[in-house]
């Protein structure tokens, strides 16, 4: 009895920080935000309960267009991060020698050593009209006058891919690392071409890593704030900016909370759809044996 009590106590003690973290920092605030989103503002210090805030969202095309735009750019960022991250991960996991591997990993980490803000300013210095890239283009004679590379959606996508690509690379490296090279050789040996081996062996094997990477990348992209605002142009709307505006500039916490809930629901739906389309499920991705 005693020892089982003790082991149960150990279990509770070990579990407690996790449970507290989940409950205090994730579940409770979410409930709070959810509750706030159902509060309609009638006038100063006058509120009623209802779904008015959600109706407002769907009645205003600017809002849901911004949400769709955010989602679509985030999907694009995710795809680009996958296309760029996969070869990098492949190189680190399969081609690089053991010793240089740590250094390569570290190089991928460098962008995370500086804050979002500094990173964005880095891009601004590079891409602005009087910036380094524009200067080099003129110096090389590729352009007759200054080129403005900043303040458009492409810049936003580049900036975000740069920020999130590491989160694509890490899960990919860890799955590819676990892949026995003999599987590839067996794939060739049994008559597969490079394409077949890649499509039928590498991709299915790396699928859990790909899915994990894509989920993280997509969520990070959709939830990012500074990069799209600082690099985006006069037309670039981002949903988190919309949420900030509602909360801070317009004192409209109710609508801000509604947007927050909608962003969570919508991105979750996109992830769910992605899992369905690729025939994966969350359990096989996260709890890979």
């Amino acid at each position: 009895m005693k020892s089982s009590d003790a082991s149960r106590l150990t279990l509770i003690l070990l579990f407690a920080p996790f449970a507290l973290w989940i409950i205090l920092l994730i579940i409770l605030p979410q409930i709070g935000v959810g509750w706030l989103s159902l509060r309609e503002k009638l006038g100063p210090r006058e509120y009623a309960f209802g779904f008015g805030n959600y109706l407002d969202f769907f009645r205003e095309p600017i809002y849901w267009n911004t949400l769709l735009r955010t989602a679509w750019i985030s999907v694009l960022v995710t795809i680009l991060a996958l296309l760029i991250g996969f070869p990098v991960a492949w190189y680190i996991a399969k081609i690089a020698r053991q010793r240089s591997r740590a250094a390569l990993f570290l190089m991928c980490l460098i962008p995370l050593w500086v804050s979002d803000l500094v990173r964005a300013f880095g891009w601004i210095l590079l891409l602005r009209e009087t910036g380094i890239v524009s200067g080099m283009l003129q110096w090389a004679g590729l352009s007759s006058g200054p080129v403005e590379l900043l303040y458009n959606d492409i810049t936003v996508v580049i900036g975000m891919v740069y920020t999130v690509v590491l989160f694509m690379i890490v899960p990919l490296v860890s799955t590819l690392d676990g892949m026995d090279n003999a599987l590839l050789e067996a794939g060739y040996n049994l008559g597969g071409s490079r394409m077949t081996v890649f499509r039928r062996i590498v991709i299915p094997y790396a699928m859990p890593g790909i899915v994990a990477g894509c989920i993280i990348t997509f969520m990070l992209a959709a939830g990012s704030y500074l990069t799209p605002i600082l690099l985006g142009g006069k037309n670039s709307m981002w949903f988190t900016e919309q949420i900030y505006e509602q909360f801070v500039t317009r004192y409209n916490w109710e609508s801000g909370a509604t947007f927050g809930v909608l962003l969570l629901v919508f991105t979750s739906a996109v992830v769910w759809l992605g899992l369905r389309l690729t025939g994966q499920n969350l359990a096989s991705t996260v709890a890979k044996e």
């Binding site: 006069k234 037309n235 919309q242 505006e245 317009r250 409209n252």
Partner: peptide, 20 residues
């Protein structure tokens, strides 16, 4: 006056969303 900033906010959003 209360509520005015809400109207202005929507106008600002409209301007930002308009494609130029």
């Amino acid at each position: 006056p209360p509520g005015l900033e809400d109207i202005e906010g929507k106008v600002l959003e409209r301007i930002k969303a308009a494609s130029g």
